[in-house]
Design a protein around this nucleic acid. Structure first.
Lengths: 228, 228
DNA sequence: GTACAATATGACCGACCGGTCACATCGACC
DNA sequence: GGTCGATGTGACCGGTCGGTCATATTGTAC
């Protein structure tokens, strides 16, 4: 973790360093990111770098923690349509956050993607229950709840479905941004939230309908019942 | 592309070089892969490398083409259950191939994953029809066919669904391998095909049921119709 | 054998890498 | 002013990098 010295730095200088680091990590995977490039871009001496961070991994972890906080911010900035979200509302919310995040902070999203590739632990096994839990366990927990609440079909393999949803959450954002096209700048500038863009919501509806129809216990939710 | 000199090389030496390159590219993203490491591992002089390849990108492209061929081989090695595959049989087949590929050639699969990260063209627009086509267009074409054949619900956004399926196809294999656990070695050694492993097929069934229920036009395919 | 082209080699080049450290500068207190 | 710890600095180190090239070796045709 960053040294005390780093935390004492004037905010402006800290932001300068973080900005340079983010640019470097977004353009290069960690293994080929360059300290020299970062210090040069940030306008600090290399010796200073080593007064702030142990090495480049230290800085990288610091940036990841910033990304994590920013993402929480974005999630919380989305309007909350109900106090307790049902399974699919939750999925829509996190996917929506991923899109908003991708548009507002494309560099951070890029770093996240690099990181996801390096994460070698796809799932872990709960030492108490012996149950396999994919990723960070959010989707796993929500699907389990969904089954208890009769939202999700009982035959669904919860952990595999959780892994699938994480795949979708992690990968769909760049695609949707491409589909949104020229509306992205308005969202990036903060003048528009993706929540209020029609095209985005239509695509979300479509995606959620597919997933909901696939996972839901009650197939009544389908749009068309084989009507010709 | 590799030089004439390279193609004239005795097969044994070519395989040695390709083996070394595959190991390097599987362990490092292209940007941080090392020519020195490859020539050292392959047991050839660096000067020789430059008689065979223009640079490391040239070699990387060559390896990618090998991966592509190997993958086709694996796909064709799977038993063909019907002459013309319906949409979901096709999806199962390519996903199954991805798992078989992951187990038999984990290094090649790793290189593919690195490559997917670098591919910046998520979708292209067909210059004739103006239609957006995701990835290599296989899923897009199959879903389009699926709608024509009444397999797929008409309201499905074909291209987004195609992108989603590609996400799943590209990401599910490592997860399933982890789930299969100690059966992987038997498959890797060629003594068993994932096609004939019960656990694998159960997971595939589950995944296909989810996707089929999500995309299919006829919800009759569902396992349980809200029966308690 | 000779001749000649194709191929193989590794020392060498300049550039960049992560990391160090002696020294310069700053800022707070007396 | 002087003192002293905290902070800033960039030349320098040993290594590795991609890439070159003069030279050595091999294969082939005569």
């Amino acid at each position: 973790m960053p040294t005390e010295t780093y935390h004492n730095l004037p905010e402006e200088k800290r932001l300068q360093i973080e900005k340079a680091a983010i640019a470097e990590f977004a353009a290069n995977p960690l293994q080929s990111a360059s300290i020299n490039a970062i210090v040069s871009e940030a306008g600090i001496a290399k010796g200073s770098f080593y007064q702030y961070f142990e090495n480049i991994d230290d800085l990288h972890r610091h940036i990841l923690s910033i990304i994590y906080k920013k993402k929480i911010e974005v999630i919380n900035s989305l309007p909350l349509d109900s106090a307790s979200l049902d399974t699919f509302r939750y999925l829509r919310r996190v996917s929506q956050a991923a899109v908003e995040f991708q548009i507002r902070f494309p560099d951070l999203a890029s770093i996240e993607r690099f990181q996801r590739l390096n994460a070698n632990h796809l799932s872990s096994v709960d030492p108490e229950t012996g149950e396999r839990v994919s990723g960070d366990g959010r989707f796993h927990a929500f699907l389990t709840q969904g089954i208890l609440h009769d939202d999700i079909a009982t035959w669904v393999d919860v952990d595999m479905a959780a892994f699938m949803l994480e795949l979708i959450e992690g990968g769909i954002a760049p695609y949707l941004v491409e589909r949104i096209g020229d509306k992205a700048p308005a969202i990036a500038s903060g003048r528009l939230s993706s929540v209020y863009d029609r095209t985005t919501q239509d695509l979300f509806d479509n995606l959620m309908d597919i997933l909901e129809a696939g996972l839901a216990r009650d197939p009544q939710i389908r749009k068309d019942y084989y009507l010709k």
